[in-house]
Amino acid sequence: MTAPRTARLTTLIVLPAALCLAAAIPAAAHPGHSAGKAADGSESYQVDLEQLNDSGAHGTAMLTLDGRELNVKIDASGLVPGQPHAQHLHGSTDGHDFHCPDASADKNGDGIVTTAEGLPVYGDINISLTTKGDTSKKSGLDVTRMPVADKDGKLSYERTLTVSQQVADHIKDLHVVQHGIDPNGNDKYDFGKGKSELDPKLPQEATAPASCGMVAGAAVGSMPVGGVETGSGGTQGVESPGLFAAGGAALLGAAALGVTARRRRTAATDTH
């Protein structure tokens, strides 16, 4: 009777440990703010958009790369309602380090980081996130093909693009910038802050950056891919040492209990 009872006790102890391990692995594989690789081989990168120029704009962009097919999905709010918002992937694919600017980029001290002031920090346009047609730099100011915020200042955008191999290889070095601010709060673009230095027919408000976000895990000042250090990879954050340590302990515990049970069964057999 001793051997069967011991086996049942072992089963009751091992099962909860195995269940804990099974629960730990999915939790580690789907962290809230990290990049990861899907079963189909695609890689997804989260970009948290934070306001520039006290715009109040914020949101999240998801970049999903499958070979050279890039799906861009953006959900943002706090934008100028009813107005088009130019948006781009900025940055370099040749090893230069760019990142989102802070207030120190306002070189003339007028309280606004203009696009011209921001470009040395976040880099030139790499891809124009238009709603249709061309996505090159030359479409960067084509507001007729940029998404428009609704009456509540919310914007949803999704488009799948075919990108160059350089962009695919350096997607972690690029970042999302949305443009269009409303400093005087009249819910429209006007010339209260003067003309845009990019196109004098457009007001400064229409082209000044409203939000910017980097791929989660790509630290400000870190070397981009191809530099001395590659920085954060596409799967950073997937491995959780604490959860894997707990899972390893569960496996070791289960193995130890199994060995003990086998030894007891062997001893019982020898006795008989």
Rank of each mutant, 00 (worst) to 15 (best):
D142L: 08
K154L: 00
V176L: 03
G185W: 00
D173W: 01
G185R: 10
A149K: 04
V167Q: 09
L174M: 08
Q178D: 09
S156Y: 10
M146G: 07
K154V: 05
Q178V: 15
P183D: 02
T160C: 14
G185K: 14
H170S: 04
D142Q: 14
H175N: 07
D152K: 03
D142W: 11
H179W: 07
T160E: 08
G180N: 00
V143L: 14
S156M: 13
P183W: 11
V167K: 10
D142R: 13
I171E: 11
H175M: 15
V148H: 11
N184I: 03
N184F: 02
T160V: 12
S156V: 13
Y157L: 09
G185H: 11
T160G: 15
Q166E: 15
I181E: 01
Q165K: 11
Q166I: 08
M146T: 05
V148M: 13
S164K: 01
L141A: 11
D142F: 09
T160I: 04
G180H: 03
R145E: 11
H179N: 14
V143R: 13
V163F: 07
G153S: 07
R159S: 01
G185P: 03
V148E: 13
E158Y: 12
V176H: 01
V176M: 12
N184H: 05
R159E: 02
N184L: 07
K154S: 07
A168S: 15
G140T: 09
I181G: 03
H170R: 09
K172C: 07
V148G: 07
V143H: 10
V163P: 02
V177F: 02
I181T: 08
D169G: 08
Q166H: 04
G185F: 00
L161P: 10
K154F: 01
K151S: 15
R145S: 14
L174Q: 05
E158F: 11
D182E: 06
L174S: 05
P147F: 02
G140H: 07
V163I: 10
G140D: 10
T144E: 14
D152V: 00
H179I: 04
V176A: 05
H175A: 08
D173P: 07
I181W: 02
D142C: 06
S164T: 14
R159L: 10
R159C: 04
V163M: 01
D150Q: 05
P147I: 02
D142A: 13
H175D: 03
L161W: 00
V143W: 06
D169T: 03
K151L: 08
L155C: 01
H175R: 08
D152F: 00
V176N: 05
Q165M: 01
R159M: 02
G185I: 12
